[in-house]
Amino acid sequence: MKRVLVYVTPKKGILDPAGQATQRALQSLGYHEVEEVKIGKYIQLTIQDNNFSESSIKEMCSRLLANPVIEDYHYEVSDV
């Protein structure tokens, strides 16, 4: 079995109000070293080895899991 971890993050330059609010919260707790907080999504897929194809993972990400207008994605594959 393959495990695919998909990370969806706001594109560079896209406003991330939740990330900004969290950064302010960290600063108010005294963590002034935090320059930026970005909040994204983490999606875990499990796929049978014989059905696994890198190109269809990319297709899944660009068609549904991420919206290319506002989001970037990357993924990691491991054996389970």
Binding site: I14, L15, P17, A18, A21, V69, I70
Partner: peptide, 17 residues
């Protein structure tokens, strides 16, 4: 309509959360 591409752009979360 934005998600299917009939209209351009996307929606972000409201600025005020």
């Amino acid at each position: 309509l934005l998600e299917c591409g009939l209209l351009p752009g996307a929606m972000l979360r409201n600025q005020g959360l």
